[in-house]
Design a protein around this nucleic acid. Structure first.
Lengths: 191, 191
DNA sequence: TCAAGCAGAATGAATGTTCATTCCTTAATT
DNA sequence: AATTAAGGAATGAACATTCATTCTGCTTGA
């Protein structure tokens, strides 16, 4: 009867609107309406718009991270780990269009720049399994000796673009095609 | 003495501000000020903000196109043409940061979606040398038999991401590294 | 009865666009 | 040559709108 989780309602409404309309196409009033909540109520749970947007990013990012880390073959060879991660990445984002579009919006906005910097330089100091993967690969000389950022680009750029095309309907990223991308990406970073 | 080319001044100011501040960080008043022009004057040359933004895109796009088409080895093998285009792409955008950032902004905005659709489906019907290149490659079985969009992604996504990192300072895309990217991209589309 | 939660109207800042007015160049007239 | 008139270009203050945020008073549950 009595709705308890207003914060959750707000997040859910916000992610849908922000993912679909873009960060500048979803005013607070619209989010409030979709959440079935007064405009002022949002501010009881989030200090301001920026905080809301960053909170959604955090939650979304955590979901992907949890998904990828589950059953991650941490002690297997680099190649196998690479395929596991990229395949998982594709699977998750094919099944969660909203998450994908939200993260894309975020990364292509001023918010994203700061975040990318922290990530690449690994400023947070937290254990990053992708970071580690590329490091291991370089040490074992199974992947090219290029900067980390370049590995990210070679490995993930085509995947992200393909997912974008998949969700906008320009491309049907079926299993067969997905496998082609993953292999192509591996071929482009391997020794 | 006598400034003649107000339209040019406006475009120049606009591209600088829009590329650097993003589409939402450069109000018309700011563009007008930077152009040394009254706010209303902009509307003598461009019907509204959208028209201005699209006009800049067109002009920018034309510049790249002209650069790439010059000395394009149209009748050479697919591989050679591919290297010519991608190398040219990198060279041009390394030397023209504003153009690069503007185009990126544009493609990651609602304006970009429409444009991408037209481009991929080749709705305009105009001769597109990249389109043709991939077509030829497929027919001659020197590159994989995958949808056109996928070729775009495999070939250009890592390049574009690397250029972005280069311009934000995350990566030094020197000649050596550029060559690695180009080769990696070719490896990922070739048979 | 009271306190906390809440809705939605009110507010004020930001910004795209308009338009009445001014300025400038050129052509016509004396 | 000097003066005037006309037409278009330019201006920037004013306007209308949008939108994040705040405020006020109502509701609800204890």
């Amino acid at each position: 009867m009595c709705k308890k989780d207003k914060r959750g309602d707000i997040i859910k409404a916000a992610i849908e609107l922000l993912a679909e309309q873009g960060f500048h196409g979803a005013p607070m009033a619209m989010i409030a309406e979709k959440a079935g909540v007064g405009a002022g109520t949002i501010y009881r749970y989030f200090e301001n718009r920026d905080v809301l947007i960053n909170a959604i990013y955090s939650e979304t990012h955590d979901r992907v991270h949890k998904y990828l880390i589950a059953d991650y073959p941490e002690n297997r060879p680099v190649r196998e780990r690479f395929f596991d991660i990229v395949r998982g990445f594709i699977t998750y984002y094919k099944n969660n269009p909203l998450d994908f579009r939200y993260i894309e919006q975020f990364h292509n906005s001023p918010y994203g720049l700061v975040h990318r910097k922290e990530k690449l330089l690994n400023l947070t100091g937290e254990y990053d399994f992708i970071h580690t993967l590329f490091q291991d690969g370089k040490e074992q000389q199974v992947i090219k000796d290029v900067p980390l950022a370049m590995h990210f680009n070679l490995a993930f750029a085509p995947v992200v673009w393909s997912l974008r095309d998949h969700h906008t309907g320009f491309l049907d990223l079926n299993d067969e095609l997905a496998d082609i991308v993953v292999h192509a990406c591996w071929d482009s970073i391997k020794m």
